[in-house]
Amino acid sequence: MSLVKIEGLCKSFGGLEVLRDISLDVERGEVIALIGKSGSGKSTFLRCINGLEQMNSGTIHVDAEPVEADERKLQKLRLKVGMIFQQFNLFPHLTALDNTALALRVVKNMSAAEARAVGLARLEKVGLGHRADSRPHQLSGGQQQRVAIARALAMDPVVLLCDEVTSALDPELVEEVLQVIRRLAEEGMTVIMVTHEMSFARSVCSRVVFMHEGRLHEMGHPEEVFGNPKTPELRQFLGQTASAATAE
């Protein structure tokens, strides 16, 4: 069975259909890029996978754990799914290390010493062992996002959801975060990421999924999707992002 199995996912906000009958299987070790215009449902799709948004119909399984409304069952699912946000969402009242250690203590009932050891190891993995005692506001945006990655990794998830993780960063800080994700991908982590970094999607991802008006409009290997787009919507989208890139 696929690591992440999504079948017939539908979601609407009020009368607005945001996701229409989405089915997607993600195998262990795959790195999936979700691309598409803003409002095409990429973020909502991602947030359904760990139950931050409740779906209206359909099923989602991660590592055989279903997404359900029940809080305890959601907790079991979320132990397997890490999420990283555009706005980092670090806990501002805690140091970088305590950010990574908090859930280990509270959710996994680790001792303080154990949690700190795991947290520190993950901070070192993202190259921030030396900033363990810094508060989020003392760190640059790129460093904050790397702490957020370390925090998610500390829980040992089987899949990592990344929601536009570089969109809030200054251009010169984007690369350090992408590098961390690239390394995770090379180590075999399963990643589903909403991104506007087309060159990153092209070089790192195993599959690119183009979303349009709440549907999976076109998907395939990056070379195929970027090199030979089949639908006019994707061609138009790629044309726009390409001209936007040259305009910069």
Binding site: L52, L74, Q75, R78, V81, M83, Q87, N89, L90, V106
Partner: peptide, 17 residues
């Protein structure tokens, strides 16, 4: 901010936690 709760929930905390 709502993102704080979302981050905590994503780390498998319960609402109360």
């Amino acid at each position: 901010q709502k993102g704080q709760t979302e981050a905590a929930l994503s780390l498998a905390m319960l609402r109360g936690q």
